[in-house]
C-alpha cells in the first residue's frame, strides 16, 4: 500500500522542482520504500502525483536498475564485481556468499531474508573487495569478514544459526 503521506510527499516534490516531471525519480524511490519494489500501485501513485501516464513511469522505472521489478529480500547484498574488485578476487567472495546463503547470485533466500546480487563498481575501488547491504558499505572484505557480517545480520533478523 502506498500511504497517503507518501503520496503527499510525491506531490510536494512535484512542486519543489522547476518542472513537476523531475519528481519522478524521487517519487519512485518513495514508492519503493513503501512497498519494497515497484508495484502496479506504486506506478499508479507516481503517475497520479506527477500527472504522467503509467506507461511513461514504467519506462523510467525500468531504465534505472535500482528500481526493483519484483519483491526482494529484507537484506539486499550487492557485491561489486567490477574491475578493481575483480583484481582483488571478488569472485571468490561472491562464491563464498553463495555457499553461505545457499542461493545463487540474483536469487533471494526462500525465507525472504536475503537477496544476493552482483553490482557494478560501487565507488569503493581502493577498498576492494567491497559490498553493500541495503546501501551500507562493507569494505576490504574477506571470507571471514563476510561470515561475521552474515552472522550479525542473522542475529538482527532473528534467524537461528544454520547447521
Amino acid at each position: 500500500m502506498i500511504s497517503e503521506q507518501a503520496k503527499q510527499r510525491m506531490r510536494d516534490l512535484a512542486s519543489r522542482y522547476p518542472v513537476a516531471r523531475s519528481a519522478v525519480m524521487p517519487s519512485l524511490h518513495i514508492a519503493q520504500l513503501e512497498e519494497g519494489y515497484i508495484t502496479a500501485e506504486g506506478l499508479q501513485a507516481v503517475a497520479e502525483a506527477i500527472n504522467l501516464t503509467i506507461d511513461d513511469v514504467e519506462s523510467i522505472a525500468t531504465f534505472y536498475t535500482m528500481y526493483y521489478q519484483r519483491p526482494q529480500g529484507k537484506k539486499i547484498i550487492h557485491v561489486c564485481t567490477s574491475i578493481s574488485c575483480y583484481l582483488r578476487n571478488c569472485d571468490a567472495l561472491v562464491e563464498h556468499l553463495e555457499q553461505r546463503l545457499q542461493i545463487k547470485r540474483g536469487e533471494t533466500t526462500p525465507d525472504g531474508n536475503y537477496s544476493l546480487k552482483t553490482a557494478e563498481c560501487i565507488a569503493a575501488c581502493s577498498s576492494a573487495p567491497a559490498l553493500q547491504v541495503n546501501g551500507e558499505f562493507y569494505e576490504h572484505m574477506t571470507n571471514e569478514r563476510a561470515d561475521a557480517l552474515i552472522d550479525a545480520l542473522d542475529q538482527e533478523l532473528g534467524i537461528e544459526r544454520r547447521v
Binding site: R16, Y17, V19, R21, S22, A23, V24, M25, P26, L28, H29, I50, S59, I60, F63, Y64, T65, M66, Y67, E120
Partner: peptide, 26 residues
C-alpha cells in the same frame, strides 16, 4: 536540490544527467 540517481552509469554523462534530472530515461 539534492537529487538521487537510481542506478545508471550513463547519467554521469552530462546531458544524460540533465535528462535524468528532468525525469526521463537517461
Amino acid at each position: 536540490i539534492v537529487h538521487r540517481g537510481a542506478g545508471a552509469y550513463i547519467c554521469g554523462e552530462e546531458s544524460a544527467l540533465m535528462e535524468s534530472l528532468e525525469g526521463r530515461r537517461g
